[in-house]
Amino acid sequence: MSSSPPPQPSAREVPPPGLDLEKLRSCLDRERPGLVGGPLRAQLIQGGRSNLTYTVTDGAGRWVVRRPPLGHVLATAHDMKREHRVITALHGTAVPVPTPVLLCEDESVLGSPFYVMEFVDGTPYRTAEQLAPLGPERTREAVLSLVDTLVDLHAVDPESVGLADFGRPEGFLDRQLRRWGKQLDASRNRELGGIDELHAALGRALPDSAAPSVIHGDYRLDNVLIGGDDRIKAVLDWEMSTLGDPLTDLGLLAMYSRPIDLPGSPISTTATAAGHPAAAELIERYAERSGRDTSAISWYTAFAWFKLAVILEGIHYRYTLGQTVGAGFDRIGDLVPVFIEHGLTTLQEG
């Protein structure tokens, strides 16, 4: 969903995998008559970690289709209805989200549930190099707007937008810590110094959660679209959203705002971009604008380091089994000790 030009027709254009354009057109004509005015063309948007995302156009209008990955097994991990529900609920609030168009749970159309939303023109900045042309001042404003939008999200009253039952906020942090501990156990195939120490220390220092809110679950710069005015046009990728402790979103954002000390890291970061505010400034801005107590933010940031270490170790484990393909996977394992060290250091600083 960047500001790339619409896909152009070719002599014998083949639609991307997982998207039957004829069946999609029939579904849209049936459910949203008059929306589409001509033959559909599509392209797969690269860069997504999990669910498949496509841009679709009839030459005049543009839309985005989201569906689970091909051959997915766990429906709960790729819940289209959940994603569609949260953007529908947030549409019309201060949180910028794409306009929802359609949820289709009929698997005979595309082979799995999917949803359609309006295309939003903007850029997802994934690296410091991509931010460089903006210059320091514009980069700073873009990142600060990320904090302001997070404050707006956490200010939404879940009940008022129909999300009162969107999650189980009671015991949220304890469940999260146990969940990621189990994920770690499922990927163990080597010694990882400090990982168990970090997990245990997080358990001993478990903070009392703030008042629950709608949380994004994976809030960072490359999950939003930035417009030409350097403001956020849409927040994307709501697959991990729920009701829970809002400071988990802030802790993750703080984690991503610290440079990763590994030359040639396969994990992209924008933290080294000129003008990018330090984590401390982002936390201070959030506290000032939200009125929330952020005194325990070191725990939440350390938890984010732990969670990402577990995710990366899972990727490394699959790589050792020959289950991943592509560039960079051979270096993922080198990052895990770095994340563990940052987690331990951050927790001690708190």
Rank of each mutant, 00 (worst) to 15 (best):
V101A: 08
L247R: 00
H72Q: 12
L344P: 06
T345F: 00
A77M: 12
D330G: 02
D237L: 03
A274M: 06
I215W: 08
G326Y: 03
G194W: 05
W180Q: 06
D106E: 13
W238F: 10
V109K: 04
R62C: 03
H216N: 07
H276R: 07
P100L: 14
M240Y: 03
D208M: 13
Q130T: 11
R138H: 09
A155Y: 07
L221N: 12
L312R: 04
R62W: 00
L236D: 10
G227H: 05
V95L: 13
Y317M: 09
L35D: 13
A132W: 02
N51T: 12
R318W: 03
R82P: 04
P5G: 13
R289P: 00
D20H: 13
A309Q: 07
G314H: 00
T346C: 12
T127V: 14
D229S: 00
A128Q: 01
R138Y: 04
T139E: 06
T269A: 04
Q176D: 06
L344R: 14
A200D: 14
P17K: 03
R258T: 15
L192K: 03
Y256G: 14
N223H: 05
P158T: 08
G59L: 13
R285E: 11
V116K: 11
P96N: 07
E159I: 01
Q183E: 11
S295Y: 07
G71Q: 05
S3N: 15
R289A: 11
G291W: 11
L243S: 12
L184T: 03
T248L: 11
L184D: 03
A77K: 06
T93V: 11
V65H: 05
Y115T: 02
Y115H: 13
R126S: 10
A279N: 04
I332M: 12
G244Q: 10
V56S: 05
L335C: 12
T301R: 10
Y286H: 06
I232L: 13
T301W: 08
V310P: 02
G193T: 15
P124S: 15
T320N: 02
P136W: 02
V336Y: 02
D330S: 14
V147K: 08
F306E: 11
P39R: 09
L344M: 03
S4I: 01
R204I: 00
P158D: 03
A164K: 15
A142Q: 08
S112K: 09
G343R: 07
Y286G: 08
T53F: 04
D208L: 14
G37Y: 06
E341W: 01
A42W: 13
P158S: 09
P16M: 13
H78T: 09
P98V: 12
W238Q: 06
A274S: 14
F329I: 07
W180E: 08
H316V: 05
A296M: 01
A274V: 08
M240C: 01
P96K: 07
L163D: 00
H216P: 09
